[in-house]
């Protein structure tokens, strides 16, 4: 199994532990990752200029296509955005034409069949839960974990095809396979608050507060994420508060622990 690893902008700069732990876990599970000179996925410009966003995304797809690889990204916003770009390219031939012309100027071409995958579906469906279970050597038995789904991977389901939009199970399945106990919590599918952090910080705080409160009330010991934005939001929000924070773990960190990997290789102190 081989993928082009799309880290996006946030992971290397702000959540390096996510890159470390992703590489460590996938390495252990026999997934090969290739680094390509990708650029921004286009997410930041989505609100301002559709064409620029699609072009940025398409350029990445073209790079992966030239390397003959599918894309794996640990970032849910990059994931959703790249998939949205594919949709816009599919449904708007004029836009596609302009993007192809712009790519041709760089000797790049839109590839036919590049699949964009998020880390979690690759783990659950490509590597497979059984294979992961077989590799677990230090199960996290008894640890109560709430899984935060993250909007841009889950919805809109016809674009992302991540899991069932109203009753997803993939993240809980992946928590269970580490030996930990997935805890049910009503707000598991809600927004983490990050996307409105710049526009409306107080609204963002209320969204995050509601999630954290719900996670605590549900009896969680750990909140698991699989997106750098969500991870940053939960960590930074709780760091600013006075209460003792609910520990927030990136999923590959949790899995890495269960696979018996050294904390250092997972970005854990």
């Amino acid at each position: 199994m081989k993928y082009a690893l799309f880290l996006g902008c946030k992971i290397p700069a702000s959540v390096p532990a996510y890159e470390l732990s992703t590489r460590a876990v996938l390495g252990r599970l026999g997934v090969t990752l290739v680094d390509l000179p990708f650029n921004c996925c286009g997410y930041p410009v989505r609100s301002l200029d559709r064409e620029a966003f699609v072009f940025a995304a398409a350029r990445n797809l073209a790079l992966a296509g030239a390397a003959g690889l599918d894309v794996l990204t640990p970032c849910k916003c990059c994931f959703g955005n790249l998939r949205h770009a594919q949709r816009f390219l599919d449904e708007d031939p004029a836009l596609r034409q302009r993007v192809e012309t712009a790519l041709a100027a760089e000797r790049l071409a839109l590839p036919a069949g590049v699949t964009v995958e998020h880390l979690l579906p690759v783990l659950a469906r490509k590597v497979g839960l059984a294979a992961i279970a077989a590799a677990v050597t230090a199960p996290r038995t008894g640890l109560r974990v709430v899984a935060h789904y993250g909007c841009h991977a889950l919805r809109p389901s016809d674009v992302t095809r991540f899991d069932h939009p109203l009753a997803p199970t993939i993240f809980e399945d992946l928590v269970r396979v580490t030996g930990a106990t997935p805890v049910e919590w009503p707000r598991r599918l809600d927004c983490c608050g990050e996307p409105v952090h710049d526009a409306n910080p107080s609204l963002s705080d209320r969204l995050t507060q509601a999630k954290v409160d719900d996670a605590r009330e549900s009896g969680a010991e750990v909140l698991a994420t699989a997106c750098p934005y969500c991870q940053m939001r939960f960590t930074e929000f709780q760091a600013a508060g006075s209460a003792a924070p609910l520990p927030v773990l990136l999923y590959p960190q949790l899995l890495g622990q269960a696979l018996g990997l050294a904390p250092r290789t997972l970005g854990l102190s």
Binding site: P156, S157, D158, H164, P165, L166, A167, T169
Partner: peptide, 20 residues
């Protein structure tokens, strides 16, 4: 009802293709 029914069928292994 919408969420509970989705959960009910999904947990029983139904494969859904929404918006198709």
């Amino acid at each position: 009802l919408n969420s509970a029914l989705e959960q009910a069928v999904v947990t029983r292994g139904v494969h859904r293709m929404l918006r198709a």
